[in-house]
């Protein structure tokens, strides 16, 4: 089976019903995607499937075949250079860091110009026990403001 992950093709041997989460973590060694509950509640395993956030713990790998998958490793590389990643650090939006990859993936597809309420809705499927979410919203808004300022220049 071939999987297109972060722009790279991975060849994996996997039962079609294996969870995408396990294939990513165990076979592809992309351990940035985390497991927090195994039942689609916490969002720690969020990845993009053809650009849409999904819980990798609820996706049989068969459903990912032939589609484009984005994990945290594909967001801003090993440096974490995506503007959202930088602002997460700056604003204290990552504490223990375990929900962070999933949170960032969900945040990465929030449309530009989203208001606070829309940001909350877009992140409603991602649980964070550390921050109380306020810092996460500030980080998302800061990244947007920075991008807007760069555009304005």
């Amino acid at each position: 089976m071939k999987l297109r992950i972060n722009g790279t093709t991975f060849r994996v041997e996997a039962h079609p019903l294996e969870r995408l989460l396990d294939v990513l973590r165990i076979q592809c060694k992309l351990t940035g995607t985390k497991e927090g509950c195994g039942e689609g509640e916490c969002g720690a395993c969020t990845v993009l499937l053809d650009g849409e956030p999904v819980n990798a713990c609820l996706v049989p790998v068969a459903h990912a075949e032939g589609r484009s998958i984005t994990t945290i490793e594909g967001l801003g590389g090993t440096e974490g250079s995506h503007p959202l990643q930088r602002s997460f650090v700056e604003q204290g939006a990552a504490q223990c860091g375990f929900c962070t990859p999933g949170m960032l993936i969900s945040a990465s597809v929030i449309p530009a110009g989203a208001r606070r309420e829309e940001i909350r809705c877009a992140l409603a499927g991602n649980l964070c026990r550390c921050t109380g979410y306020s810092a996460v919203y500030r980080a998302v808004e800061l990244a947007r403001a920075k991008r807007a300022r760069r555009r304005a220049r």
Partner: peptide
């Protein structure tokens, strides 16, 4: 039949699902 798996995979994960053969509707 298996579609979005949002319920079915919870059952698989917690071992509460009896079924063993699935038809993928995707």
């Amino acid at each position: 039949p298996m579609a979005g798996c949002t319920d079915l995979y919870v059952g698989i994960h917690f071992g509460s699902l009896k079924q063993r053969r699935f038809l993928d509707l995707q």
